[in-house]
Design a protein around this nucleic acid. Sequence first.
DNA 1: GTCTATAGCGGGATAGAC
DNA 2: GTCTATCCCGCTATAGAC
Lengths: 193, 193
Amino acid sequence: MATKSNSDTKTQALNLAKGYLQTLGFNGFSFQTIADALGIKKASLHYYFASKEEMGLAVMEDYIEGHKVWAKKVHDLPSKIKLEKLIKGFCALSSKKRDMICPVGSFSSDFNTVTPKMKKKIKQFHFLIRDWLMETLEQGKKEGTIKRSLDTETGADWFLSTLQGAIQIARLRGEQDSLKKIVDTMLENFHGK
Amino acid sequence: MATKSNSDTKTQALNLAKGYLQTLGFNGFSFQTIADALGIKKASLHYYFASKEEMGLAVMEDYIEGHKVWAKKVHDLPSKIKLEKLIKGFCALSSKKRDMICPVGSFSSDFNTVTPKMKKKIKQFHFLIRDWLMETLEQGKKEGTIKRSLDTETGADWFLSTLQGAIQIARLRGEQDSLKKIVDTMLENFHGK
DNA sequence: GTCTATAGCGGGATAGAC
DNA sequence: GTCTATCCCGCTATAGAC
């Protein structure tokens, strides 16, 4: 309560939007959905967000800022721990009854239906994570926990593809065991001399 | 023209639906979209498909039958070639201007918005491919092209996750180089003693 | 800041003529 | 088999009262 209230309507709406985005996709929820959850009328939401696109952009911006804050927090940790923490974040999404997928992945099918501005923001978030992953893999190579033979760029892309795909497949199946096994196997393959 | 015409309206509609599914997602196209492409009215499509759900089910059934036919065709080939052919199929989706993603992946964000029957069909298709992959990895182990140390189940899941994620990321970025590099790196990791 | 009311569109779906 | 016409619904968005 020192800085910003977490319970003001705009913040609540934003958080609800993030949840719905990751469970139903951007086209799977509406102002009505959020308004119902908040107990207000959908027209009232336009006071905070002029359009759904604007809300979508705010949501993506929130993810971007969130990652930046998180990245600072883990900055001094060893690569191995950082990667584990990133994965834990992904796995938490799909755990028991949350039924969420990765924000970037949630746009996978809707991607061709959103505005150019939205596309740009989604890409921006994707590349932010990718850059962080590349740095972290480089760090791991220096620390001797990541194979030097693994190309950093391809490694980061493979890592992201695997996580994004595995979390979707886990939800499709309604289980999380596969996700954990895939991730463990991937890490074993990335680790080494 | 011996068996079934490929140009009858129902078949054309089905093929259009498959294309739109993989580019726009299931909720991203409508009867109107297909009707426009065919040059008929949307009401006429209800003559072939009672509902959109029924059309969706027919689309998934078509993928399932298509895979079964394909699997028979490649049945006697070595594992290594089979895997390459499967991957080639995936990569062809995203190549130049097709802009498609994998059918299963196209439901990733829409999954929680479709009917139980649809969910079941999507799962059925997913497990069909997965079973085929597991068999093919086993075959590869016998033929000495796939590492024996790789758990078959986890390997198949990892393979699928990677492909599904990588093709989505390639489309997001508007390039295909990453997809090729990821796939090559994955195959290198799967191959071995 | 939240409301009611309404406009305009596009979706799925049906009835019935041709 | 394809058409017109129509229905009902949910969506985004706006205007203006409170």
